[in-house]
């Protein structure tokens, strides 16, 4: 069974380590915050200027001055701090943020990522994505294995304009967990009941399968 988006988030949450500072992108990455394992404390960074992002506010407690990078109303938690946008990207650029999780339209077998532009269709801008992928030391991509047309999003080379080069370390899709190695995508885990053959058939880039590939555990 392929994972749903909540299970993808749940699997990514297993990458969190105690004490991590984490930046979560919009979409599936945001859901990761709901699955932080017991006994692990992480601090969420929102690049518009907040460390220590709390849950969404209760009705009536929302404040227009307090939003996340997705422009959603949020709250602070004990120990939160605010800062300006230059300092925010300063902590990203200098490697203080331990883990970045973001969505993608395409990832190449070399670790290039495309997620900001579809020429002629969608030109909204890159926001903070280019800064994040250029600097984060540990980037996990959360995405579907194929696009709505059924075409693989794990490619030899990105076809869309790229956001960053050789920056992605790990990918979690509804079918698999993969790592970027020297030679291509290394298959680490399968979704429960999903075959290696199915993953192979939906991966356009070079897929490396070494020995028995275990099923994901939650």
């Amino acid at each position: 069974m392929a994972l749903d988006k909540f299970q993808i988030a749940q699997r990514i949450a297993k990458e969190l380590k105690d004490g991590f500072y984490v930046n979560l992108g919009i979409g599936i990455p945001t859901l990761v915050a709901n699955y932080v394992p017991e006994g692990i404390n992480v601090t969420l960074q929102s690049e518009n200027g907040l460390l220590g992002m709390g849950p969404f506010p209760q009705e009536g407690k929302q404040d227009a001055d307090l939003i996340n990078a997705g422009k959603q109303t949020i709250t602070t938690i004990p120990g939160s701090s605010f800062f300006d946008s230059a300092m925010s990207f300063g902590m990203i650029r200098s490697g203080k943020v331990d883990l970045t999780v973001l969505g993608a339209m395409e990832v190449s077998e070399k670790g290039d990522i495309a997620n900001w532009k579809i020429p002629g269709k969608m030109v909204k801008g890159m926001g903070g994505a280019m800064d994040l992928v250029a600097s984060a030391k540990n980037i996990v991509v959360a995405m579907m294995h194929t696009n709505p047309k059924g075409e693989s999003k794990l490619l030899k080379e990105c076809q869309l304009p790229i956001t960053g080069i050789r920056c992605i370390k790990k990918i979690v899709t509804e079918l698999a967990v993969l790592e970027i190695g020297e030679e291509g995508f290394i298959l680490l885990e399968r979704a429960p009941g999903v075959t290696v053959e199915e993953i192979m058939s939906k991966t356009a880039g070079h897929l490396i399968v070494e020995g028995e590939v275990p099923e994901m555990k939650f």
């Binding site: 690049e47 300006d84 946008s85 230059a86 925010s88 990207f89 990203i92 650029r93 030109v123 801008g125 890159m126 926001g127 903070g128 994505a129 280019m130 800064d131």
Partner: peptide, 8 residues
């Protein structure tokens, strides 16, 4: 269009 950190 420029990266957000670059803008800042």
């Amino acid at each position: 269009l420029i990266p957000q950190g670059t803008l800042a």
